[in-house]
Protein backbone atom coordinates (compact mmCIF):
# COMPACT_ATOMS: atom_id res chain seq x y z
CA UNK A 1 0.00 0.00 0.00
CA UNK A 2 2.13 2.91 -1.17
CA UNK A 3 -0.32 5.71 -1.81
CA UNK A 4 -4.01 6.28 -1.46
CA UNK A 5 -6.15 6.56 -4.53
CA UNK A 6 -9.66 7.93 -4.70
CA UNK A 7 -10.81 4.39 -5.36
CA UNK A 8 -9.82 3.53 -1.81
CA UNK A 9 -12.47 5.87 -0.55
CA UNK A 10 -15.27 4.09 -2.33
CA UNK A 11 -18.57 4.11 -0.50
CA UNK A 12 -18.82 0.36 -0.92
CA UNK A 13 -19.44 -1.32 2.38
CA UNK A 14 -18.48 -4.74 1.10
CA UNK A 15 -14.90 -3.79 0.37
CA UNK A 16 -12.40 -6.35 1.65
CA UNK A 17 -8.68 -6.26 2.14
CA UNK A 18 -6.28 -9.18 1.93
CA UNK A 19 -4.31 -9.59 5.13
CA UNK A 20 -1.53 -12.02 5.92
CA UNK A 21 -0.30 -13.05 9.29
CA UNK A 22 1.37 -15.94 11.05
CA UNK A 23 -1.14 -17.51 13.37
CA UNK A 24 0.17 -20.11 15.80
CA UNK A 25 3.20 -20.60 13.58
CA UNK A 26 1.25 -21.06 10.34
CA UNK A 27 1.10 -18.54 7.52
CA UNK A 28 -2.45 -17.44 6.92
CA UNK A 29 -4.03 -15.12 4.36
CA UNK A 30 -7.63 -14.01 4.47
CA UNK A 31 -9.91 -11.34 3.06
CA UNK A 32 -11.49 -9.15 5.68
CA UNK A 33 -13.57 -6.01 5.76
CA UNK A 34 -11.53 -3.22 7.38
CA UNK A 35 -14.10 -2.94 10.14
CA UNK A 36 -13.69 -6.57 11.17
CA UNK A 37 -11.94 -6.85 14.52
CA UNK A 38 -9.11 -9.30 15.01
CA UNK A 39 -11.18 -11.38 17.43
CA UNK A 40 -13.98 -11.74 14.86
CA UNK A 41 -11.44 -12.69 12.20
CA UNK A 42 -9.83 -15.30 14.43
CA UNK A 43 -13.15 -16.80 15.48
CA UNK A 44 -15.27 -16.50 12.35
CA UNK A 45 -12.77 -16.74 9.53
CA UNK A 46 -10.00 -18.88 11.02
CA UNK A 47 -12.36 -20.79 13.35
CA UNK A 48 -10.05 -20.37 16.30
CA UNK A 49 -12.82 -20.06 18.86
CA UNK A 50 -10.64 -20.35 21.95
CA UNK A 51 -10.27 -16.57 21.90
CA UNK A 52 -13.48 -15.25 23.42
CA UNK A 53 -15.34 -12.09 22.48
CA UNK A 54 -16.71 -10.73 25.74
CA UNK A 55 -17.27 -7.02 26.24
CA UNK A 56 -15.75 -6.05 22.87
CA UNK A 57 -14.48 -2.82 24.38
CA UNK A 58 -11.27 -3.78 26.13
CA UNK A 59 -12.65 -4.13 29.63
CA UNK A 60 -12.96 -7.88 30.29
CA UNK A 61 -9.76 -9.41 28.90
CA UNK A 62 -11.43 -12.56 27.51
CA UNK A 63 -10.07 -11.85 24.01
CA UNK A 64 -6.38 -11.56 24.86
CA UNK A 65 -3.98 -12.99 22.28
CA UNK A 66 -0.26 -12.54 21.78
CA UNK A 67 0.65 -10.16 19.00
CA UNK A 68 4.36 -10.15 18.14
CA UNK A 69 5.00 -11.57 21.59
CA UNK A 70 2.87 -9.14 23.60
CA UNK A 71 -0.59 -9.73 25.01
CA UNK A 72 -3.20 -7.51 23.41
CA UNK A 73 -6.98 -7.30 23.27
CA UNK A 74 -8.03 -8.76 19.93
CA UNK A 75 -11.30 -6.79 20.23
CA UNK A 76 -9.34 -3.53 20.35
CA UNK A 77 -7.79 -3.82 16.94
CA UNK A 78 -8.98 -4.45 13.45
CA UNK A 79 -7.63 -7.46 11.62
CA UNK A 80 -6.13 -5.19 8.94
CA UNK A 81 -3.94 -3.56 11.57
CA UNK A 82 -2.40 -6.96 12.30
CA UNK A 83 -1.33 -7.48 8.68
CA UNK A 84 2.20 -8.89 8.79
CA UNK A 85 2.11 -9.71 12.49
CA UNK A 86 2.74 -12.92 14.36
CA UNK A 87 -0.29 -13.94 16.41
CA UNK A 88 -0.47 -16.65 19.04
CA UNK A 89 -3.88 -17.65 20.34
CA UNK A 90 -4.76 -19.93 23.22
CA UNK A 91 -4.84 -22.82 20.75
CA UNK A 92 -1.22 -22.21 19.76
CA UNK A 93 -0.05 -21.72 23.33
CA UNK A 94 -1.80 -24.96 24.32
CA UNK A 95 -0.37 -27.01 21.48
CA UNK A 96 3.17 -25.79 22.05
CA UNK A 97 3.04 -26.84 25.70
CA UNK A 98 4.46 -23.54 27.02
CA UNK A 99 1.52 -23.07 29.37
CA UNK A 100 0.90 -26.72 30.21
CA UNK A 101 1.88 -26.17 33.84
CA UNK A 102 -0.43 -23.18 34.16
CA UNK A 103 -3.29 -25.13 32.61
CA UNK A 104 -2.71 -28.10 34.91
CA UNK A 105 -2.63 -25.86 37.97
CA UNK A 106 -5.80 -23.98 36.90
CA UNK A 107 -7.47 -27.38 36.55
CA UNK A 108 -6.16 -28.73 39.83
CA UNK A 109 -7.23 -25.69 41.84
CA UNK A 110 -10.58 -25.09 40.17
CA UNK A 111 -9.34 -21.74 38.94
CA UNK A 112 -12.20 -21.74 36.47
CA UNK A 113 -15.85 -22.60 36.53
CA UNK A 114 -17.58 -21.58 33.32
CA UNK A 115 -14.19 -21.13 31.62
CA UNK A 116 -15.12 -18.08 29.57
CA UNK A 117 -12.34 -15.95 31.03
CA UNK A 118 -9.74 -18.72 31.12
CA UNK A 119 -8.02 -18.21 27.73
CA UNK A 120 -7.47 -14.53 28.54
CA UNK A 121 -6.30 -15.35 32.05
CA UNK A 122 -3.77 -17.84 30.68
CA UNK A 123 -2.45 -15.45 28.03
CA UNK A 124 -2.08 -12.79 30.69
CA UNK A 125 -0.45 -15.12 33.23
CA UNK A 126 1.93 -16.38 30.55
CA UNK A 127 3.10 -12.84 29.80
CA UNK A 128 3.41 -11.96 33.49
CA UNK A 129 5.60 -14.97 34.23
CA UNK A 130 7.76 -14.28 31.19
CA UNK A 131 8.46 -10.78 32.54
CA UNK A 132 8.58 -11.35 36.30
CA UNK A 133 9.95 -14.68 37.49
CA UNK A 134 8.55 -14.52 41.01
CA UNK A 135 5.71 -12.00 41.17
CA UNK A 136 4.17 -11.27 44.56
CA UNK A 137 0.47 -12.03 45.02
CA UNK A 138 -0.11 -8.29 44.79
CA UNK A 139 1.72 -8.14 41.48
CA UNK A 140 -0.33 -11.07 40.20
CA UNK A 141 -3.56 -9.33 41.19
CA UNK A 142 -2.34 -6.12 39.59
CA UNK A 143 -1.52 -7.93 36.35
CA UNK A 144 -4.96 -9.57 36.35
CA UNK A 145 -6.78 -6.30 36.99
CA UNK A 146 -7.93 -6.14 33.37
CA UNK A 147 -9.30 -9.70 33.28
CA UNK A 148 -12.79 -10.27 34.61
CA UNK A 149 -13.84 -13.58 36.14
CA UNK A 150 -17.43 -13.77 37.35
CA UNK A 151 -17.22 -17.28 38.82
CA UNK A 152 -14.17 -17.86 40.96
CA UNK A 153 -13.61 -14.73 42.99
CA UNK A 154 -10.04 -14.75 41.62
CA UNK A 155 -8.46 -16.37 44.70
CA UNK A 156 -7.88 -19.74 43.02
CA UNK A 157 -6.55 -18.04 39.89
CA UNK A 158 -4.00 -16.07 41.91
CA UNK A 159 -3.13 -19.29 43.79
CA UNK A 160 -2.55 -21.20 40.55
CA UNK A 161 -0.28 -18.53 39.05
CA UNK A 162 1.57 -18.16 42.34
CA UNK A 163 2.24 -21.90 42.56
CA UNK A 164 3.44 -22.14 38.96
CA UNK A 165 5.74 -19.14 39.43
CA UNK A 166 7.31 -20.81 42.45
CA UNK A 167 7.58 -24.19 40.72
CA UNK A 168 9.19 -22.68 37.64
CA UNK A 169 11.73 -20.66 39.56
CA UNK A 170 12.59 -23.51 41.93
CA UNK A 171 12.62 -26.54 39.72
CA UNK A 172 12.82 -25.07 36.26
CA UNK A 173 9.69 -27.15 35.70
CA UNK A 174 7.71 -26.04 32.68
Amino acid sequence: MSGIGDDMLAEEVNETVRVRFIVNGRKVACDVAPRETLVDCLRNVLELTGTHAGCEMGACGACLVRLDGRSVHSCLMFAVQADGARIDTIEGLSESGVIADLQAEFHRRNALQCGFCTPGMLVNAHELLSQVARPSREEIRDALSGNYCRCTGYEAIVDAIDVVAKARSEGGAA
Partner: peptide, 15 residues
Protein backbone atom coordinates in the same frame (compact mmCIF):
# COMPACT_ATOMS: atom_id res chain seq x y z
CA UNK B 1 -19.61 -3.38 15.35
CA UNK B 2 -18.00 -0.35 13.72
CA UNK B 3 -19.61 1.19 10.67
CA UNK B 4 -17.83 0.25 7.46
CA UNK B 5 -14.78 2.33 6.64
CA UNK B 6 -11.78 2.22 4.34
CA UNK B 7 -8.33 1.56 5.70
CA UNK B 8 -5.02 3.03 4.67
CA UNK B 9 -1.62 2.21 6.16
CA UNK B 10 0.67 5.24 5.82
CA UNK B 11 4.45 4.88 5.60
CA UNK B 12 5.24 8.56 6.07
CA UNK B 13 3.74 11.56 7.81
CA UNK B 14 3.14 13.23 4.44
CA UNK B 15 1.18 10.21 3.20
Amino acid sequence: KARAFSYFRADTIDQ
